[in-house]
Computed example of a mutant assay.
Amino acid sequence: MSIFSKIVSGEIPAHKVAETADFLAFLDVSPLVMGHVLIIPKKEVDYIFDMEDELYSGLTLFAKSVAQGVKKAFPCKKVGVAVIGLEVPHTHIHLIPMNNVSDMNFAKEKLKPSQEELAEAAEKIKAGL
């Protein structure tokens, strides 16, 4: 069971920003920038292109709606989208508020926000949805 499946089941807490029967959006605890959100299907599928078409398209539409809330909460030029999928064997989409390309550099040092800062960020995004 992946760490993301443990978040879905409630075994591990997360700062959730949106949820449906099939999908979950929550803050990355080691974000590149504040407002960095992870979008996952609740069904554990390792590789995004192994997903069934209906689940894949639903995940994409869910990400689109969450991205609108991210942009309202964290004003930026665009919300960047990345799918890497090497660290956690559970499909996930990164939504990252961007003002320049370096905001999407996964090699740079991650932020270490407090639980209070994450909770505040999650509330801002929820308010923007």
Rank of each mutant, 00 (worst) to 15 (best):
V45H: 05
K77G: 07
M98C: 13
E54V: 13
V79D: 06
E11C: 08
E44A: 11
L86R: 10
A21F: 12
E87F: 09
A119T: 10
K42G: 07
I3M: 14
E52D: 15
G128Y: 08
T20Q: 13
V37R: 01
D28F: 00
G85I: 09
L86Q: 13
I40H: 03
E87G: 09
G58C: 09
L32G: 05
L118V: 06
V37C: 05
N100S: 14
K6G: 02
I40N: 03
V8K: 08
I12C: 08
V88D: 07
E44W: 03
L55D: 11
D53Y: 02
F26G: 10
M1Q: 05
A127R: 12
E120K: 09
A63E: 00
I39G: 08
P89F: 03
F74Q: 03
I84N: 06
E54C: 01
H90Y: 07
L55T: 12
G85C: 11
E116D: 15
I125L: 14
V17W: 06
M104T: 10
S5A: 15
Q115A: 14
A25Y: 04
A122R: 02
H92T: 07
V83M: 11
S9G: 11
S5D: 11
E123P: 00
G35V: 01
V101I: 15
E44V: 10
L129M: 15
H94D: 13
A73V: 03
L55V: 09
K124I: 07
A63T: 00
N105L: 13
L32R: 05
D28A: 05
A25T: 07
V81F: 10
S114G: 05
I96Y: 03
L129P: 00
M104L: 15
D46P: 01
K72D: 04
L24N: 06
P41I: 10
P75F: 03
E109Y: 00
P97N: 12
T20H: 10
I7W: 03
A63D: 01
I12V: 15
E109Q: 13
K110Y: 10
A73M: 05
F49R: 14
K16M: 13
P41A: 15
L24H: 06
L38E: 09
S5F: 04
V83T: 11
D53E: 15
D53R: 06
P31I: 13
E116G: 04
T20M: 13
A18M: 14
V37Y: 00
L129C: 05
S57M: 06
S5M: 13
E87N: 14
K72A: 13
E54D: 15
I3S: 11
T60S: 11
K124Y: 04
I93K: 01
A127Y: 03
L61E: 10
K71D: 06
I3W: 02
S30C: 06
K108R: 15
F62H: 04
L111S: 04
I96A: 03
E117R: 02
